[in-house]
C-alpha cells in the first residue's frame, strides 16, 4: 500500500485542535489501517510554515501523499466526508486480515 503522509495545521491547544487530532487518529487507525505518517503543526509557533502552505483556516488537514494533494478543513467530525475529501477509500473489513 502507498505511503500516506498527512499534515494537520492547528492554532494552539484548543478544544477544537484536540478534537481534530483525535478524529484524525481514529480515522487513520480504523480506516487507513494504521499505515500513515502524520505531522501536527501549530501555526502560532510556526507561522512561516502556514505562510508557505498558504493555510487560512484551522484546523486544516493536508494530504501530501499519495497524490493528488487534497485539503480538508474543520474538526474532521464526519469520517465519511473526510475520506471523500482526501480522495481515499476506506479499507474493507475483509481486506484487513
Amino acid at each position: 500500500m502507498d505511503k500516506v503522509l498527512l499534515k494537520l495545521y492547528v492554532t494552539g491547544q484548543t478544544p477544537k485542535t484536540e478534537r481534530a487530532i483525535a478524529n484524525l487518529r481514529r480515522i487513520c487507525e480504523e480506516d487507513l489501517g494504521g499505515q500513515y505518517e502524520m505531522a501536527v503543526i501549530d501555526v502560532l509557533e510556526r507561522p512561516q510554515l502556514a505562510e508557505d502552505e498558504k493555510i487560512l483556516a484551522t484546523p486544516t488537514l493536508v494530504k501530501m501523499l499519495p497524490p493528488p494533494l487534497r485539503r480538508v478543513i474543520g474538526d474532521l467530525s464526519d469520517t465519511e466526508k473526510v475520506l471523500l475529501g482526501l480522495d481515499m477509500q476506506p479499507l474493507e473489513k475483509g481486506e484487513e486480515e
Binding site: Y9, V10, T11, G12, K16, R19, A20, V43, L44, A50, I55, L56, A57, T58, P59, T60, R70, R71, V72, I73, G74, D75, L76, S77, D78, K81, V82, L84, G85
Partner: peptide
C-alpha cells in the same frame, strides 16, 4: 479542492 468537515476558524 477543499472540503469542509465540521468546525473551523481562520486562526492560521
Amino acid at each position: 479542492e477543499t472540503v469542509v468537515v465540521g468546525d473551523y476558524d481562520l486562526g492560521a
